[in-house]
Nucleic acid binder design. Structure first.
Lengths: 191, 191
DNA sequence: TTCCTAATGTTTACAGTGATAACATATGCG
DNA sequence: CGCATATGTTATCACTGTAAACATTAGGAA
């Protein structure tokens, strides 16, 4: 890979890969364009040919992470349908956060609102899955307000749980053991 | 305040105040020691006499913010006791997050785990309030596991809701209108 | 094929950052 | 009064994101 040809071939992809690798080891703020460039074996400013700014690189990474999250959620839910499938997407959400803390954070800092009216979430994305399962559980007679409330509630639950564990506010192993109890009551209550 | 005496008087407090002010306008990463020093009218390195590193300053700010949050929660809950008081602490939590986004984030990034066994939360702190109200609601016959599950659930709910709104993942006004619906069911379900 | 334009990389440079070390001044205690 | 110590300052370093000017190459038009 130590080609000394002037042109790299596919620098953009290489930069994204390296940045993702660095994200597994350090926070987004610690991620340095120069370090990425160094590791890829290219001058610091070469990155700017593909990303106008660091912010834009982070956005690309967030986009990548979002797709990955949705993918893992779908994979988890595939093994079981309906209500149990929904719970599985929740578990997958928390698991993803724990496995890729920095990437997870990035997704929510550097990305447009997933659940805002003007943002249409693509099929299979985390936001789409959430709305899909909630809509299915509540049935067609539910009002938009009811749907929104349930979506918000379910999302807040898994998101808050993920963040509290990630930030070390709560003892990790104990909290992990509680994931099911935290998620499950939401189903039992018929919500 | 433009005293040109060599010594400032109470630089530590001035730095904290200025930093808190800057935090109302920008993220913690954007907060620069040099800018703080400049605004206070002191050389950049003077700050290091009071805070060994930027990290330490942020910790102090987080500590301050945590106290402020607890204070506002207690004030909100004072107007009504018991279950309604508990709900008020939840509302106060979200309100605080929305009013002081950067300080709120700081609290959870730069602070020891509030709910870990080894950390004893002082009376009146957010974590103490949470455990207090939950314990009261569940009664003395509840097992530690049940208490922990309920604490985690309630906390995750308000924390997740706060974060999703702060990160703009959800339309703010719509979400604010939903706060009660999101918090309330937790009470109705007897949890 | 040849040529030239656009895409891609490099070098150089600048302003801003957190941090350390060496030096300056004032405060308050004996 | 005198001096140790707390507190501020200046100079400097390594690092960052980013812009501008320059170098090289790839790929289509002639």
């Amino acid at each position: 890979m130590t080609r000394q040809s002037y042109h790299h071939g596919d620098l953009r992809a290489a930069v994204v890969d390296e940045a993702l690798a660095l994200l597994e080891k350090g926070s987004p703020e610690d991620l340095s364009l120069r370090e990425v460039a160094r590791n890829v074996g290219v001058s610091a400013t070469a990155v700017y040919r593909h990303f106008p700014s660091k912010e834009d690189l982070l956005k690309a990474l967030a986009h990548h992470g979002l797709a990955l999250l949705g993918e893992q959620q779908r994979k988890s839910a595939a093994r079981s349908g309906g209500t149990e499938g929904f719970a599985q997407t929740g578990r997958a959400y928390v698991r993803f956060a724990l496995n890729h803390p920095n990437l997870f954070r990035l997704i929510f800092i550097h990305s447009p609102g997933h659940m805002r009216p003007e943002t249409s979430s693509p099929e299979g994305s985390p936001a789409w899955l959430l709305r899909h399962y909630i809509g299915q559980a509540l049935g067609p007679r539910a009002t938009p307000e009811q749907v929104f409330a349930s979506v918000l509630r379910a999302w807040a639950l898994v998101h808050g749980l993920s963040m509290l564990i990630l930030d070390g506010q709560v003892e990790r192993k104990a909290a992990e053991a509680m994931i099911d109890q935290v998620i499950a009551p939401d189903r039992r209550a018929g919500k």
